[in-house]
């Protein structure tokens, strides 16, 4: 099982939507085949050396990460990257996936994630090669797929959140899970 934070040491990272080979069940009455647009994206390159360095540096800063290989990534990585980057016939640069486990409680606090981000910056800056590195965070803003409030959106909060992320992340880092869940 993955811990709260996990880094991939993979060299070639595939899109997990390409791994399924079976067909839509014959009993499907309501939804026709091909309703979902399948991606046919080329695999991404990983960067095992930078991943190993980040792993060592974050461990030294008391983040006890787990590491994974042989795991495909899903739309959380491939969808945003596909609109940010040209990717035919290949992606222009390698990535180091860093996964934050927030699906099942207990989950890391906003403050813990903020500290991870600060440690991540130091890890990247201490890498011996002079790489150009960009950090892309993906995930939902207001986003609710559970229960009676499924489909909840709060555009005003989303805009405020993006503004705070840029100008005052410390304020965001003080928010509790309950506050974040209520707003978003």
């Amino acid at each position: 099982m993955l811990k709260s934070f996990a880094v991939s040491h993979e060299e070639a990272i595939s899109d997990h939507t390409q791994e399924t080979t079976s067909t839509w069940p014959a009993s499907s009455a309501r939804l026709p085949p091909r309703t979902r647009q399948r991606s046919a994206l080329p695999p991404l390159q990983g960067h095992p050396k930078l991943a190993a360095h980040i792993g060592n540096a974050l461990f030294a800063e008391e983040f006890d990460l787990s590491f994974f290989q042989d795991k495909a990534l899903d739309h959380g990585a491939f969808s945003p990257l596909s609109v940010l980057w040209p990717h035919e016939p290949a992606w222009p640069a390698p990535i180091v996936p860093l996964q934050v486990g927030v699906v099942q409680f207990p989950i890391p606090s906003a403050k813990r994630c903020y500290k991870l981000g600060q440690a991540l910056r130091r890890a990247i800056e201490s890498y011996p090669e002079d790489l150009r590195v960009v950090i892309i965070a993906t995930g939902g803003l207001s986003h609710q797929v559970h229960g009676e409030r499924a489909g909840f959106n709060n555009v005003a909060w989303d805009e405020r959140f993006m503004d705070l992320l840029e100008k005052d992340p410390a304020t965001l880092s003080e928010m509790t899970h309950a506050q974040l869940a209520s707003a978003a």
């Binding site: 069940p25 499907s28 309501r30 939804l31 309703t35 797929v145 559970h146 009676e148 499924a150 489909g151």
Partner: peptide
């Protein structure tokens, strides 16, 4: 597996 879209599930939960 049963041919129900995510949107049907969201609607039903609401």
């Amino acid at each position: 597996v049963i041919g129900t879209s995510n949107l049907h599930i969201y609607a039903a939960m609401r």
